[in-house]
Design a protein around this nucleic acid. Structure first.
Lengths: 251, 251
DNA sequence: ATTTATTGATTGTATATACAACTTAATGTT
DNA sequence: AACATTAAGTTGTATATACAATCAATAAAT
């Protein structure tokens, strides 16, 4: 019967995360979560707009927006008169933009939080000064932040910031806002570089990331410029078994 | 006065192309044209939604959709309470271009050579078929090639190729020309995706790559499309201590 | 002079409604 | 049996309305 509840919809009742995010965004998260978790397989039919409207008691235009945006992002495909389906092409999320790990986790439907392990101000060491293109007597901030996805460590971020270019860095609360967000306000990035490699973590890093010895890690070293000055240099360490870097390109 | 017509709007009157496309799409086109032609410079203010509504006599929601989508595409930036502006950054230049390892080694001034370990034709396994979007009874090529830089192994390349799309693959000599070069001739790539992660190699891979046990490796899995068909899927394994992936981006 | 409050402009979200365009399945006609 | 029509379901677009959230400039108060 057309009246029977769509089987996929069982878990849709009151299924949206009750974060303060807007409805369409929470719906996107919920659907993304279903897809990335594998609960909804590729090519599988997704509930129609009308069904979701009934199940969640929201407006069809809101549902339409969520589905339309997910389609634009490549997670779903839609065909007029036919329905909405899970796309084949990978459900993986962001690519080069590992900038904002919080957003990336959220876009996968995961739960994000962070722990700030260090945030200090001091004079740059020789190495740091060279790396940032500064002099050794100039001041820098050092921060160490551990990022979590669903209560598992996903990224260890060690960052050095030119204090002249981002003087308020030391007063931020990075459990609420990622350094990237603040730094883009303070000194908008005009250029950047990555260096990606596979490394073995040391004992402290193993403990922080909650992984076994000999578990390889994906390390990204990044420097970002604002104009001709280096704003910040960061080392991002990710457990190899929980983190992948995805990229898509077209010609 | 707030009533005066926005200078940028002069050309907006009856400015939409009269193709049969929907209004929001034509508005996107018109704005994109202004930006790419340089008529609207970076950081320049874009007419507000209300102004465009007045000028074109369309609904604000329609204008909102056009501006919102262009923002998602990176052409514009918007700030609540402030306005809409032309974004600075152009486009993401593809960075992770590790396509041709031979060229890369040469560009570093290293000496390149390759060993072909396998090159066979057979029917696709279930996994391979799924990965390539084929059926299990269709034919594929499998190749395994070891690439060297200065006589040290630098990349182990395991590749599966859709035999229908690249029928001559089995007759190539990949010690003289990399698979990438041939495949670009046979079925020019239109799209691709990478998946980068840190992994531990198995015993055979350690031997081939001439590395110690527990030495982490950088693994790149790549699939490339020609049109809507997947041409090839490859797994590229690199010793973590000899290989780094570098990328640079600018706005 | 400094701070605070107000106001207007702007974008952000949510809803209800309407109709168009397309697809599939069922129904009717020849 | 083959074809044409109809109906139901689905996505696509456009509009009007309402209110919230944010920002900058102005006005008011101290």
């Amino acid at each position: 019967m057309a009246n029977s509840i769509h089987p996929l919809l069982v878990n849709f009742f009151a299924d949206l995360p009750d974060t303060p995010a807007p409805i369409y965004a929470r719906l996107k998260q919920a659907i993304t979560q279903k897809v990335t978790s594998g609960e909804w397989q590729a090519n599988q039919r997704v509930p129609s707009e009308a069904e979701i409207v009934k199940a969640l008691n929201v407006s069809r235009m809101t549902v339409n927006r969520a589905l339309r945006e997910l389609t634009a992002e490549g997670l779903l495909t839609r065909q007029q008169g036919l329905g909405t389906f899970v796309a084949q092409k990978k459900a993986h999320s962001a690519l080069f933009e590992v900038h904002n790990i919080a957003e990336e986790v959220a876009s996968r439907g995961g739960q994000y939080h962070a722990k700030q392990l260090q945030l200090t101000k001091s004079k740059a060491s020789v190495e740091e000064a060279i790396n940032l293109g500064m002099r050794t007597n100039q001041e820098i901030f050092r921060s160490v932040i551990l990022h979590f996805e669903d209560n598992q460590p996903i990224q260890l971020e060690e960052r050095v910031v030119n204090a002249t270019l981002a003087p308020e860095y030391g007063e931020q609360d990075f459990t609420q806002e990622t350094p990237y967000v603040y730094l883009m306000k303070a000194a908008p990035m005009t250029e950047g570089e990555h260096l990606v490699e596979a490394v073995l973590p040391n004992a402290r890093e193993c403990e922080l990331l909650d992984i076994n010895d000999h578990e390889p890690c994906l390390q990204i070293k990044r420097r970002t410029w604002s104009g001709d000055q280096i704003v910040t240099a960061a080392r991002l360490l990710h457990p190899g078994n929980r983190f992948q870097l995805f990229g898509h390109f077209s010609s």
